Amino acid sequence: MSEPAYLDTPQGRRIAYHQTSGRGPGVIFLGGFKSDMQGSKATHLEAWAKAQGHAFLRFDYSGHGQSSGAFTDGCIGDWAQDAQAVIENLTEGPQVIVGSSMGGWISLLMCKRIPQRIAGLITIAAAPDFTEDGYWSAFDDDQRAMLDRDGHVAVPSDYGDPYIITKRLIEDGRDHLVLRSPLPLPFPVRSLQGTADKAVLTETALRLLDHAQSNDMRLTLVKDADHQMSNPENLDLITATIYEVLRLSGK
């Protein structure tokens, strides 16, 4: 495994990344909550982009993978800053963004902040506003009291140790919600969602489809696919979708 390069952000965080040169628009992968750039989707897409001759970039948010910081110190606002710094400092021109789970939410924030740098968007089990509509709305009175008293609460995870959900994560999330205000997406958008996903329900994908303002947005429901969407058939669907968006962007 090759060593990553690092970008120091204006906020003082050190972001680890792997970048492949190639023609544009480049493809940038934004991973999910507590995931990292060594995952199967990120590495598969990198290999595909290399084979196609397209520029590609994968990175770890602060508190994730090989980047600086502790996961429990981070929040949506921090990770959005990380993504924006990566896009603005490491790439040129419009990019095709691929956002997985929380990365879908971060991607939508990029679409609002720097739409001129977005050539197209692919979301995979996108989880916009999950801190509010997922965690906070599901917390009972005891959990809400614990969050206020202790500053954090442990939530069971299907992927190993419980997730530590912090008060800062919840409160900061409210400053970055994307499904409560206009969401213009003036470029090709393709959303992929598994029907067997237990972390992000199909209703969330339909809500995003209904809420976004786009002349070219499509949602593909994949029967029996789970939240990971990382088996060979799913990975082929993702790369085919990226190819479609690249074609529509004229590249």
Results as ranks from 00 to 15, higher is better:
Glu132Arg: 11
Tyr159Leu: 05
Gly250His: 06
Pro188Val: 06
Asp148Ser: 09
Glu3Asn: 10
Leu185Thr: 12
Ile76Ala: 13
Val245Gly: 01
Ser101Asn: 01
Ile87Ala: 07
Val189Phe: 06
Thr166Asp: 09
Leu169Gln: 15
Leu246Lys: 07
Pro94Glu: 02
His211Ala: 05
Gln116Asn: 09
Val27Trp: 12
Gly160Gln: 11
Val98Asp: 02
Thr91Gln: 14
Ile97His: 00
Leu248Cys: 07
Asp197Ala: 10
Val222Arg: 08
Ala240Leu: 05
Ser191Thr: 13
Glu92Met: 10
Leu7Pro: 03
Phe56Arg: 04
Asp129Arg: 04
Pro128Lys: 04
His54Glu: 03
Thr239Ile: 01
Pro184Val: 11
Asp133Ala: 11
Val86Cys: 04
Pro188Tyr: 08
Leu185Val: 13
Thr20Glu: 13
Met37Ser: 11
Ser191Met: 15
Asp60Ile: 01
His152Ala: 12
Gly63Pro: 10
Phe59Trp: 12
Leu246Gln: 05
Met146Ser: 14
Gln116Met: 00
Thr123Val: 03
Leu121Met: 03
Arg180Ile: 05
Ala127Lys: 01
Asp158Thr: 13
Pro182Ala: 14
Gln19Asn: 00
Lys251Trp: 12
Ile106Met: 00
Gly12Trp: 06
Gln84His: 09
Asn234Glu: 15
Trp136Ser: 01
Gln95His: 04
Thr43Ile: 10
Ser40Met: 13
Leu185Glu: 13
Gly120His: 01
